[in-house]
């Protein structure tokens, strides 16, 4: 049962990821990215990482995707309907990526994977405590990066 659900969502992620990189229409590619991100959120849910699944939907699908679609619409005038040539070296890139995929799978295929213990999932309060105890420095650095990114984005994009 669980495996069937996983296979379904894995197929969803794979197909929509292929759409993201191959569709000519950028708007459709962005929408397929949303589909892929929702699929990954579902896989997080299956891995009992509920909080992360909701963060994924809120931040990625809610914020980043909206921003990307905004940018696509703002730059729509500059995007020619038929851009020729739209790809650079697609065959070479496909070969290189397939080779990398083969190497990665070969590196991890032989390993023996023991199934993870059931009912031993990380709970949310442990995650929260970890973020303000052991990982407090990275956590604060991330907030600093956020401020820098927002200030930088406004400074770059603002009209002068």
């Amino acid at each position: 049962m669980s495996f069937t659900v996983f296979a379904l969502f894995a197929a969803l992620v794979l197909v929509s990821a292929i759409w993201v990189v191959t569709l000519r229409n950028l708007f459709r590619a962005a929408l397929s990215l949303g589909l892929a991100l929702l699929g990954v959120a579902a896989i997080f849910l299956l891995l009992e990482a509920e909080f992360l699944a909701f963060v994924q939907i809120l931040v990625y699908v809610g914020a980043i995707l909206t921003l990307v679609i905004f940018a696509i619409m703002l730059t729509a005038k500059l995007q020619t309907a038929v851009d020729v040539p739209s790809r650079r070296q697609p065959v070479a890139a496909a070969l290189a990526c397939t080779a990398l995929f083969a190497v990665l799978v070969a590196a991890t295929w032989g390993l023996s994977w023991s199934p993870y213990p059931a009912g031993d999932a990380v709970n949310l309060s442990a995650l929260g405590r970890e973020l303000v105890e052991t990982l407090v420095l990275p956590f604060e650095v991330i907030s600093l990066v956020f401020v820098a990114a927002v200030v930088g984005a406004i400074a770059i994009a603002a009209r002068r």
Partner: peptide
Amino acid sequence: HAVFCLGLYGMLTRR
């Protein structure tokens, strides 16, 4: 792995 390689492919081919 597959999603990573697809992302790499998109990175290499998109203009």
